[in-house]
Each structure stands twice: as structure tokens, then as C-alpha cells.
Design a binder for these strands. Structure first.
Lengths: 205, 205
DNA sequence: ATTTGATAAATTTGTTTAAAAAGTCAGGAA
DNA sequence: TTCCTGACTTTTTAAACAAATTTATCAAAT
């Protein structure tokens, strides 16, 4: 690991940071490689020296965001004492992540389907970690006798996460399919907290 | 009510039935007014005598489907004895409705957003009836002391319906955003039954 | 009041073209 | 050899236009 050049890694980071800012403020389709290069006072060609293409640059930024997210998630869930607080940690972490990076994801709205395969890998990793952490919390509570034994913990967590994901705002159900408007995130957050409370109670022994 | 002409209503029904078959088998965009007229051995112009335009014809068919659905829903929920079986009735009715009319809804996938306003009205009516029926079941169980009192029953049912709506298949989360493939409906149906069981238990006193 | 053939209007589909952005490369600098 | 650039080519996007299909209208017939 880390057999690479030091200077190279630093420059890669600078590119990633500049790209992140552009993507965050203007979205994927409205930022050009020329603009990113301009922000860094380097030539566009140099970007292609460090990254194969624009979509892979976006993927690299997203990968960094996802590891930050996963680390935060693991840290918070580990601090939690039971399944309910573990879910509350997951929901809060997810909420903050969406609020902080909302515009970054315009890439998703636009492309809707047929995103680069790497994106789905990353989403899969995040999901895998969520399930792992929450399954552990679930099993711990089962061992403590707080929760009724469950046939397949991972499937159960997966199902609950889907249910949480279905939460949306009451008014105007007829808008953008993709994902919620920024002004709705807080309402969704509160509803998820309410929902998970009922849910965990339903799982209790 | 029913101040209209008898013959006219019959013909309207025939048009609606022929249109339904076309929409169901080929979808909205792949059926032409000429084809519907052909099926009925009448001129296309006559269709416009009975319906203002193609989209309103689709809306009229959908309105008929929705009243059938609502009647079925009310009938089944009324037969149910408690909140859990009421939800099971709703889920089963919804499932059968989707299986039976799956292709009819390609109109939704294609247009995604910006559907005619009447469609959203109809969806609103369906949703309103679901909430009304299930809220009644909820309140009945609260009175019986089976379920813990709830601040706003309608909001609670709405939230649970959203949660049920979020259920999807485990594999291939990265496909069509719109709605699930026909081959996934059964799996979703089973998962919803599992979910609602936990949920209602979480609401119990 | 109903129905139709003929016709008009609108929408979709396909093509062309120009501009913009993505992506490449030979070669210079460190 | 590694890092970097200006100039270049290729691809994508957007607008404009025509052809074909479909929606929608209407005067006239039953």
C-alpha cells in the first residue's frame, strides 16, 4: 500500500478538492474540466494525467465522501448502546450527509439510471456497512434479550432501511421522482425518527 | 345524477373498455386513436365526440379502475377485524391491482413527472380512501385498547404507507427508478406483509 | 343527436450544422 | 523518467429544419 509518489498524492488531493467544490456548487454537468483546471492554475491536460476521464474524477470524489461517511457512521453507531440509538445514529448521519452535499448529487437526478458502475459499487459499500453495523446492534440486543430473535438479521435491516427510504413529504407527492428537495430533508428526518421508534418497538421481545 | 342519454353512456363504456384493452396490452404511447377506433369499427372522429382528447380518455379509464380499486379496498377492509388484517387487506388489494394492470401504467414510467392534473387527483382520492379506511381501523383498535393512542391517526397511516411503499427488491437496486419490474411484485408483496406485522406490533399498547 | 371523411394542427422522429466540451498527443521542462 | 502544456482531434450538446406520424377539428351527411 501507499507505494506511490508523495507529490503525486498531494496533487491528486488538490484536484479532488477543487473538483468537489465545483461539483458541489454547480453540479456535474455544469462544471467543465477547463474550469477545474483553471481553479488550480493548471492545464486541462494535466487533469487527464491524474484521472482517466471526467466521470472517474467524479467517482474519486464520491469515493472520498463515502469513506468519510462510513467512518462517521461506524464511529457513531459504535457509541450507541442499543438498536434504537444505533438507527438514530444512522439516520442522523445520513441526514447530515445529504444536507451538506445536497447539490453534489445532481449527477444522480440528471442521469437517473445508467450511472457509471463504480457509483453503484460505492453505494453498495455504504449499504453493506450500514447493514453490518446495524445487524451487529440488532444481534447484540437479541443477545441481551431486548429483541426477539430474527431469522436473517441482514435481511431484516435491509427491509427496515427500505422502509425508512420510502419516507417522503405529505404535500406535493407529484414532483421529481429521483430524490427529495432540499427543503424537505428536515421533515423527512423527523418522520424517520418517528418511524424507527415504532419499528424497534415492534421488534422488541 | 345520470341525467344523460342511455345510448351515450353505453357507447362511452364500450370506448372505455376498448381503450383499456389497448392501454393494458400496448401502453399509452403505443396505442393510437385510430387503433382504438378500428377495434370498435367506428371513426376516430367519433372518439373525439365522446372524449375531449386522448389523455382524458386515459384519465377516464383510470378513473374507472380507481373506483373499482377503492370499492374493493373498502369492502375488504370493512371485513377485517383489526388493524393488522386491515393493512393486510390493503396490501393484498394493492398487489392484485398492480399485477392485473401492470402494463397499463407504462404511461407513468414514460412521463415520469408532469402527468395530467386529473391523474394526481385520482391518486389523491385513492390515497385519501386508504388513509380513511385504515385510520378507522386504527382508531377502532385504539378504542379496544389494543393500540396505543396516536396523536394524528391520518399522519401515522400516511407514514406507514410511505414506509410500505419504500419496500423494494434486494438485488439490482440500480435499475428503473420509476416503479418495480413485474417479476419483483411478489417479493415486494411478501416483504410488505412481513414489515406491517412488525409495525403494528410496534403500535400495540 | 350521431357519425364520418377530409383536412388542419401538433407532436414525434430524424438529419444537419455549429458550438462547446471532452479527450489525445507530440514534445518541452524539471 | 516523471510531470506538464499548447495545440489538436473527437465526442457531445443544442438548435434548426424537414418528413412522417398522430392528434384534433369541422363541415356535411344520416
Amino acid at each position: 500500500m501507499s507505494s506511490g509518489n508523495e507529490q503525486q498524492d498531494i496533487k491528486r488531493e488538490r484536484i479532488l478538492e477543487a473538483s468537489y467544490q465545483r461539483f458541489l456548487h454547480y453540479g456535474y454537468s455544469k462544471t467543465t474540466m477547463n474550469e477545474i483546471a483553471g481553479d488550480l492554475s493548471m492545464s486541462k491536460a494535466l487533469l487527464y494525467y491524474y484521472f482517466p476521464d471526467k466521470s472517474q474524477l467524479y467517482v474519486a470524489v464520491m469515493r472520498k465522501l463515502s469513506t468519510d461517511f462510513i467512518n462517521m457512521l461506524i464511529d457513531r453507531v459504535r457509541q450507541s448502546t442499543d438498536l434504537l440509538s444505533a438507527f438514530q445514529a444512522q439516520i442522523a448521519t445520513h441526514h447530515e450527509f445529504m444536507v451538506n452535499n445536497y447539490n453534489f448529487f445532481d449527477f444522480f437526478r440528471l442521469n437517473e439510471q445508467n450511472l457509471p458502475a463504480e457509483i453503484w459499487e460505492i453505494i453498495g459499500q455504504i449499504h453493506h456497512n450500514e447493514i453490518e453495523q446495524l445487524s451487529n446492534s440488532l444481534l447484540r440486543d437479541v443477545d441481551k434479550g431486548l429483541i426477539k430473535p430474527v431469522e436473517d438479521p441482514a435481511d431484516m435491516i435491509d427491509l427496515i432501511l427500505d422502509a425508512l427510504h420510502g419516507v417522503k413529504v405529505r404535500s406535493m407527492s407529484h414532483k421529481k421522482t429521483g430524490f427529495p428537495l432540499k427543503e424537505h430533508l428536515d421533515e423527512i428526518y423527523q418522520k424517520r425518527l418517528l418511524l424507527i421508534g415504532i419499528f424497534v418497538k415492534g421488534l422488541s421481545a
